[in-house]
Amino acid sequence: MSIQHFRVALIPFFAAFCLPVFAHPETLVKVKDAEDQLGARVGYIELDLNSGKILESFRPEERFPMMSTFKVLLCGAVLSRVDAGQEQLGRRIHYSQNDLVEYSPVTEKHLTDGMTVRELCSAAITMSDNTAANLLLTTIGGPKELTAFLHNMGDHVTRLDRWEPELNEAIPNDERDTTMPAAMATTLRKLLTGELLTLASRQQLIDWMEADKVAGPLLRSALPAGWFIADKSGAGERGSRGIIAALGPDGKPSRIVVIYTTGSQATMDERNRQIAEIGASLIKHW
């Protein structure tokens, strides 16, 4: 067993022997301040990774656009098919120029040779490549099948209805392509620590998230040296922004954090800054 596999296998073990965790309302004060600064709703939840206990939450059962955070769930569904012998990570998928959609920095470079399922998941999570996500959605049967996968996990809230990039439209009061912070946090925890996926697939999923290259201005910008984070960000229309993450000190994750916002007129930089400040408060009061 590799060191990384050992780390993920012992996530519940280490967490069980940690000192009790206590909620700190100071972080919620910052979440509410972010709402004021952005002029928009902000949803927040913080779960203990081992027990699933909610440590703090704000608007945990209000719907927010998922945006690209759905790509972690998508690759979880792909990995479940791999575990069941219905898919192979090494299978190569070929596609054409007509398949390319807006923001496809990886797939646009491989029109000639195609990409493997493993490479597509890596591109979808680490670079948020939209064509990679659409190609992977095709392998599982489309958005409705991802929703069905989530329902089978016990998540009857999260739903995907459309493809990239239309799913980022974020129309107010439109339930399409949305989740709730509580539902997303619980589902992410199941994917990373539950028995739904094999140990190898859980490790692969967290490795992809740990290698995320496009979430630097968010929670990662607030992390002290030595902290662990595996995350996936999302951005959408109407001032929408979000991030889902597993993080913790001492090089291992111990909490799940989900943050979503929508309806702001603020710039992307300002949305990023507010999420980073929430992260800084979380870490300060850990």
Score class of each variant (00 low, 15 high):
residue 25 P to L: 02
residue 25 P to F: 02
residue 26 E to G: 11
residue 26 E to M: 13
residue 26 E to A: 02
residue 27 T to L: 08
residue 28 L to Q: 05
residue 28 L to R: 09
residue 29 V to G: 07
residue 29 V to W: 03
residue 31 V to T: 10
residue 32 K to G: 08
residue 33 D to C: 03
residue 33 D to W: 14
residue 34 A to W: 02
residue 34 A to R: 05
residue 35 E to K: 11
residue 38 L to S: 01
residue 40 A to L: 13
residue 40 A to D: 06
residue 41 R to K: 15
residue 42 V to C: 15
residue 43 G to T: 07
residue 43 G to R: 08
residue 44 Y to D: 03
residue 46 E to Y: 10
residue 47 L to S: 02
residue 47 L to D: 02
residue 47 L to G: 01
residue 48 D to K: 11
residue 48 D to Y: 01
residue 49 L to C: 00
residue 49 L to G: 00
residue 49 L to R: 01
residue 51 S to H: 12
residue 52 G to L: 10
residue 54 I to S: 06
residue 54 I to Q: 06
residue 55 L to N: 05
residue 56 E to A: 11
residue 57 S to T: 06
residue 58 F to T: 03
residue 58 F to R: 05
residue 59 R to I: 07
residue 60 P to I: 05
residue 60 P to K: 08
residue 61 E to S: 02
residue 62 E to S: 12
residue 63 R to M: 07
residue 63 R to P: 09
residue 65 P to H: 02
residue 65 P to K: 09
residue 66 M to K: 02
residue 66 M to G: 03
residue 68 S to E: 15
residue 71 K to P: 06
residue 72 V to F: 06
residue 72 V to K: 00
residue 74 L to W: 02
residue 76 G to A: 06
residue 77 A to K: 07
residue 79 L to A: 03
residue 79 L to P: 02
residue 79 L to R: 01
residue 82 V to E: 01
residue 83 D to G: 03
residue 83 D to I: 13
residue 84 A to Y: 01
residue 85 G to E: 05
residue 85 G to Q: 09
residue 86 Q to F: 13
residue 87 E to P: 06
residue 88 Q to Y: 12
residue 89 L to I: 02
residue 89 L to E: 02
residue 90 G to L: 09
residue 91 R to T: 08
residue 91 R to I: 04
residue 91 R to Y: 04
residue 92 R to D: 12
residue 92 R to I: 15
residue 92 R to Y: 12
residue 92 R to W: 06
residue 92 R to K: 08
residue 94 H to F: 08
residue 95 Y to G: 12
residue 97 Q to T: 02
residue 97 Q to M: 04
residue 98 N to W: 10
residue 99 D to C: 14
residue 101 V to C: 04
residue 101 V to S: 15
residue 101 V to I: 14
residue 103 Y to E: 12
residue 104 S to M: 07
residue 104 S to T: 02
residue 105 P to D: 03
residue 105 P to Q: 02
residue 105 P to K: 04
residue 106 V to K: 12
residue 108 E to I: 11
residue 108 E to S: 09
residue 108 E to F: 07
residue 108 E to D: 03
residue 109 K to L: 07
residue 110 H to W: 00
residue 111 L to F: 03
residue 111 L to G: 04
residue 112 T to K: 03
residue 112 T to G: 05
residue 113 D to E: 06
residue 113 D to N: 06
residue 114 G to A: 12
residue 114 G to M: 13
residue 115 M to V: 02
residue 116 T to C: 01
residue 117 V to F: 01
residue 118 R to S: 09
residue 121 C to P: 00
residue 123 A to N: 02
residue 123 A to H: 10
residue 124 A to V: 06
residue 126 T to P: 07
residue 127 M to E: 12
residue 128 S to W: 03
residue 128 S to M: 10
residue 129 D to Q: 01
residue 130 N to T: 09
residue 130 N to E: 10
residue 133 A to L: 09
residue 133 A to R: 01
residue 137 L to S: 01
residue 138 T to Y: 12
residue 140 I to F: 12
residue 141 G to Q: 01
residue 141 G to I: 08
residue 143 P to S: 07
residue 143 P to V: 06
residue 145 E to M: 09
residue 145 E to C: 11
residue 146 L to P: 04
residue 146 L to R: 05
residue 147 T to G: 05
residue 149 F to R: 04
residue 149 F to G: 03
residue 152 N to E: 15
residue 153 M to C: 04
residue 155 D to Y: 11
residue 155 D to N: 05
residue 158 T to D: 13
residue 158 T to G: 10
residue 162 R to S: 00
residue 163 W to Y: 14
residue 163 W to S: 13
residue 163 W to V: 12
residue 163 W to G: 08
residue 165 P to D: 01
residue 165 P to E: 02
residue 166 E to H: 04
residue 167 L to M: 00
residue 167 L to K: 00
residue 167 L to V: 01
residue 168 N to T: 09
residue 169 E to H: 00
residue 169 E to K: 04
residue 169 E to M: 05
residue 169 E to T: 13
residue 171 I to C: 06
residue 171 I to A: 01
residue 172 P to I: 06
residue 173 N to Q: 05
residue 174 D to V: 06
residue 175 E to T: 04
residue 176 R to S: 00
residue 176 R to I: 03
residue 179 T to W: 02
residue 179 T to F: 11
residue 179 T to Y: 15
residue 180 M to H: 11
residue 183 A to D: 15
residue 183 A to P: 06
residue 184 M to Q: 10
residue 186 T to R: 00
residue 186 T to S: 03
residue 186 T to V: 09
residue 188 L to M: 00
residue 188 L to G: 14
residue 189 R to P: 14
residue 189 R to M: 07
residue 190 K to A: 14
residue 191 L to S: 14
residue 192 L to K: 10
residue 194 G to F: 02
residue 194 G to R: 00
residue 194 G to H: 00
residue 195 E to K: 00
residue 195 E to P: 08
residue 195 E to L: 00
residue 196 L to Q: 06
residue 196 L to K: 02
residue 197 L to G: 11
residue 198 T to D: 03
residue 199 L to Y: 07
residue 199 L to C: 03
residue 199 L to D: 14
residue 201 S to H: 13
residue 202 R to L: 02
residue 203 Q to M: 13
residue 204 Q to V: 10
residue 206 I to Q: 08
residue 207 D to S: 03
residue 207 D to Q: 05
residue 208 W to F: 11
residue 208 W to C: 04
residue 210 E to W: 08
residue 212 D to F: 00
residue 214 V to C: 15
residue 214 V to P: 15
residue 218 L to R: 13
residue 219 L to N: 15
residue 220 R to I: 10
residue 221 S to H: 13
residue 223 L to T: 05
residue 224 P to F: 14
residue 226 G to K: 11
residue 226 G to M: 11
residue 228 F to K: 14
residue 229 I to W: 10
residue 230 A to R: 12
residue 232 K to E: 13
residue 232 K to A: 14
residue 233 S to I: 15
residue 235 A to E: 15
residue 235 A to K: 15
residue 236 G to T: 00
residue 237 E to Y: 10
residue 237 E to S: 00
residue 240 S to Y: 15
residue 242 G to H: 02
residue 242 G to K: 10
residue 243 I to W: 13
residue 244 I to V: 11
residue 246 A to M: 11
residue 246 A to R: 11
residue 247 L to C: 08
residue 248 G to F: 07
residue 249 P to V: 12
residue 249 P to W: 11
residue 251 G to S: 09
residue 251 G to H: 08
residue 252 K to I: 14
residue 252 K to P: 04
residue 253 P to Q: 10
residue 254 S to D: 11
residue 254 S to M: 02
residue 255 R to P: 11
residue 256 I to H: 14
residue 257 V to M: 14
residue 257 V to T: 15
residue 257 V to A: 14
residue 259 I to R: 11
residue 259 I to C: 11
residue 260 Y to C: 10
residue 260 Y to K: 15
residue 261 T to G: 13
residue 262 T to K: 02
residue 262 T to L: 03
residue 264 S to D: 11
residue 265 Q to I: 14
residue 265 Q to G: 11
residue 268 M to H: 15
residue 269 D to G: 12
residue 269 D to A: 09
residue 270 E to N: 13
residue 272 N to R: 08
residue 272 N to F: 07
residue 273 R to L: 13
residue 274 Q to E: 11
residue 274 Q to T: 10
residue 276 A to K: 06
residue 276 A to R: 12
residue 276 A to P: 11
residue 276 A to V: 14
residue 276 A to N: 13
residue 278 I to A: 14
residue 279 G to K: 14
residue 280 A to W: 11
residue 281 S to W: 09
residue 282 L to N: 05
residue 283 I to P: 11
residue 283 I to Q: 14
residue 284 K to M: 09
residue 286 W to C: 03
